[in-house]
Nucleic acid binder design. Structure first.
Length: 465
RNA sequence: GGCGGGUUAGCCAAGUGGUAAGGCAGGGCUCUGCAAAAGCCCCAUCAUCGGUUCGACUCCGAUACCCGCCUCCA
């Protein structure tokens, strides 16, 4: 069975075949963050989807070269440092570091390369020169260089917008009035006072790169002129990705991307996230509420990427419960398996069913459905003492494979501090002496200190609240 | 106005021309000093109205409502 992915370019699900003749290596470019503030959970919805895609491809034996750009020069960044007077690099460095930390907390694999726009200025200039040479770019009176969409007849193919119908709306940027045509976009922006020290020399004078050119450049530089997959949020289809295609293909004469994947947006309580609505969350906001990155990841990954995800704290709570059940099952399996070893060479039915479901354009719901069916079935067998150690070991091996693709970071098994452990031991003694009153008091004390204690036939178990 | 997506149980969400996966919540039971945890079981006829069909939630048409993009945005 082959992997099928929904290609925005054709608006159909297609068999995925890497450009690499061996079919093994895959080139994946993901539009990364603009580092001017903390990324929010909507941003991470997309990054988690991309991580799932990568992990699934890797589990199928692909070697994925994953590039995610860091946009570290852009209008909002410039505005921020203009106000604070902070140095560009130190400002963006802070948010870049926070972004990578958040990726880790969410269990996302670090991309193979995370190139910065400011470190590719030479390549950007070279690409613009090539576009100029090819007659699709022009320098305007304001000193900026623009791409002429009229010279690129297939402009609008990805977003299915008719380039001749593009009309000025309310959001026309005031500083782009020198363009020849409304749909033209900036490749190089001439320096203006507001840019302050954020400036580079170029054949067209001092200035800075436009928004879209960095991705074209970094994609080409790190992955080649034609790549397999390019991902981003659905709002990037137009204009960002449309413009990337125009630039790249006009520069190289080759197809830029073979398959485009776009994730739908995340809503909070059914509405777009916004700070004024009070429904704006960063990962750190949720951590402060006591949730874990693992719980958020599950909530984000468990909804199909092309469906709007309505995030609520209730969903996050549901994710927590689901994970508890999964963890308890995994622990039960592991104990049941004991020292038995599974045949590592062939996947079991759970691993195959899970992977097969993901092959259908990452049908995560189907995949999770398969997982929970296996869970219930095996629990039933363990209840009836009908599951042998060998079977348990095989299921355990499958679960590990599934867990790896889901990218659920291992839950923190940090032991209880000595004080709590001592109280728990004291309670155990009280219970053995059938001193229930003392036992219950100790449970309350432990609870008040932020831990819960649960009894089972095998003894007690401490968990952090 | 143009283009696109959606409407399945309290919430989230698969799926298919032959009679509805799964998760959370809820209910029942088991276990248990109590509790918690855990386990098992139960819990829908698929927005509305027409049509095609032996048969539609699944195909066609219409209606209603929701959402996204149309140069800030993952």
């Amino acid at each position: 069975m082959s992997l099928r992915l929904y290609n925005t370019l054709t608006r159909t699900e297609e068999d995925f075949r890497p450009l690499d003749p061996s079919g093994k290596r895959v080139t994946l470019y993901c539009c990364g963050p603009t580092v001017y503030n903390l990324a929010h959970i909507g941003n991470f919805r997309t990054f988690v989807f991309e991580d799932l895609l990568r992990r699934h491809m890797e589990s199928r034996g692909h070697e994925v070269r994953h590039v995610m750009n860091i946009t570290d020069v852009e209008d909002k960044i410039i505005r921020s440092i203009h106000e604070s007077g902070e140095d560009l690099r130190s400002f963006t460095g802070r948010f870049e570091a926070a972004f990578l930390e958040d990726l880790d907390a969410l269990g996302c694999l670090r991309p193979t390369v995370t190139p910065r726009a400011t470190e590719h200025i030479a390549e950007i200039i070279a690409m613009i020169q090539k576009l100029e040479k090819n007659g699709v770019a022009y320098k305007a009176a304001d000193g900026s260089v623009y791409f002429s969409i009229e010279k690129f007849p297939s402009y609008g193919r990805l977003s299915r917008l008719d380039r001749t119908q593009l009309k000025p709306g309310a959001r026309v940027s005031q500083d782009e009035h020198s363009k020849e045509a409304y749909g033209d976009f900036a490749l190089w922006k001439a320096w203006s006072e507001r840019d302050g020290k954020v400036v580079w020399d170029s054949p067209w004078g001092r200035g800075r790169p436009g928004w879209h050119i960095e991705c074209s450049c970094m994609s080409t530089r790190h992955l080649g002129e034609t790549i397999d997959l390019h991902c981003g949020g659905e709002d990037l289809v137009f204009p960002h990705h449309e413009d990337e295609i125009a630039q790249s293909e006009a520069a190289t004469g080759k197809p830029f991307v073979r398959c485009w994947l776009h994730s739908a947006h995340l809503l909070v309580d059914g509405r777009k996230m916004s700070k004024s609505e009070g429904n704006f969350f960063t990962l750190r906001d949720l951590l402060a509420k006591g949730f874990t990155g693992r719980e958020l990841r599950y909530a984000l990954v468990s909804v199909h990427y092309r469906l709007p995800l309505n995030f609520t704290l209730e969903n996050l709570e549901a994710a927590r419960q689901t994970l508890r059940r999964l963890d308890a099952w995994a622990e039960r399996l592991r104990e049941k398996a004991g020292g038995a070893t599974a045949d590592a060479s062939k996947p079991g039915s759970l691993a195959a069913a899970f992977s097969g479901a993901l092959d259908a354009d990452l049908n995560i719901s189907d995949a999770l459905g398969n997982l929970f069916e296996a869970l219930r079935e095996s629990n039933r067998r363990m209840d009836g003492n009908e599951l042998g150690a060998k079977d348990a070991a095989e299921l355990w091996r499958d679960w590990k494979a599934v867990e790896r693709v889901l990218g659920l970071p291992a839950s923190d098994p940090a032991g209880a501090p000595p004080e709590i452990a001592a109280l728990a031991e004291e309670r155990k003694a009280a219970r053995q002496a059938k001193n229930w009153k003392r036992s219950d008091e100790l449970r309350d004390t432990i609870h008040a200190k932020g831990w819960s204690v649960k009894d089972s036939p095998e003894g007690y178990k401490l968990t952090k609240l």
